[in-house]
């Protein structure tokens, strides 16, 4: 899969309140963060993309070909969606069976499914827990199990809904590594996020949704330099940008390392300051 296109899509849950009107987005090989308030339409958008909802008007295209006729279960072969709350999906009594459920559904043989499942569990560093009951694990571990159960399906595109919520530093590092690995394998990665620091650090492209409309869509750096527009959507800049701004620098920073380098240069150029 090279591109995923949402073209001129209209959608509403009830006729009075339209969610999307003529929404158009082209997703490409850049890892993409989708940010915005609750109610901005992020989850509705990914449900449309996954075929869990059907648009009232418009088209969804994979590499230019329409996928409108396919059911969610058929699309599952090509696109994975990791839900926010793992408790909405976990139902098997051991971790391995849970992770194998998806691959088996989309036609992997038992042997292949097991291999895929073990691979995926290794990626989230929980391969030692294969025999345990998922409900004996902590919520953050269960969240990683749910993630692994999608990775095991080896889909060409993976969508994450709030993967960092409730994760501590170590959990976030794992998720970051997984996203970069998916990217390296040539897969499309899209991620709904409330955590601006994580979005700035990990994603190449950021899309800001506000009340069903795309109000910003660009390289992550460009998006997060638009302080006023972000504030209008009730979003904050990442911490690094805020710090740079508070220190009185106009330049836009989104990574810790680049701000540090910049400040070191400033110190060096103004020896009387240090």
């Amino acid at each position: 899969m090279k591109t995923f296109t949402v073209r001129e899509v209209d959608f509403s849950y009830s006729p009075i309140i339209p969610i999307f009107q003529g929404l158009t987005i082209d997703f490409d090989s850049r890892t993409t963060a989708l940010v915005g308030q609750n109610g901005a339409g992020k989850t509705t958008l990914v449900k449309l993309m996954k075929g869990l909802l059907k648009p009232d008007k418009g088209e969804l295209l994979v590499d230019g070909k329409s996928i409108s006729e396919q059911t969610a279960a058929q699309l599952a072969k090509r696109m994975g969606l990791v839900f926010q709350n793992p408790n909405d999906q976990v139902f098997k009594t051991n971790v391995l069976d849970e992770v194998m459920f998806g691959p088996l559904n989309i036609g992997f043989s038992k042997r292949e499914a097991e291999k895929q499942a073990m691979n995926a569990l290794r990626k989230v560093a929980l391969e030692s827990k294969v025999a345990e009951n998922p409900y004996d694990l902590s919520l953050s571990e269960r969240k990683l199990i749910a993630l692994a159960s999608i990775l095991a399906m080896d889909t060409e595109m993976v969508i994450f809904d709030e993967p960092t919520m409730g994760q501590d530093f170590a959990g976030k590092e794992k998720i970051k590594a997984i996203i970069q690995e998916l990217k390296a394998e040539g897969k499309l990665v899209i991620c709904i996020l409330h955590d601006m620091d994580f979005a700035a650090e990990v994603f190449e492209r950021t899309i800001v949704l506000n009340q069903g409309k795309v109000i910003l869509d660009d390289e992550t750096r460009e998006v997060f330099s638009e302080k006023e527009v972000l504030e209008k959507a009730f979003l904050e800049q990442p911490s690094v940008s805020q710090i740079a701004h508070a220190l009185g620098f106009e330049k836009s920073f989104i990574h810790e390392a680049e701000l540090i380098q910049f400040l070191k240069d400033v110190q060096r150029l103004n020896p009387d300051l240090s």
Partner: peptide
């Protein structure tokens, strides 16, 4: 701090580096 699965606030990380 990383031994306990934690990172300090971003501003502290920058202060440490500088």
């Amino acid at each position: 701090l990383t031994d306990f699965g934690l990172t300090p606030p971003v501003v502290t990380t920058i202060a440490k580096a500088l």
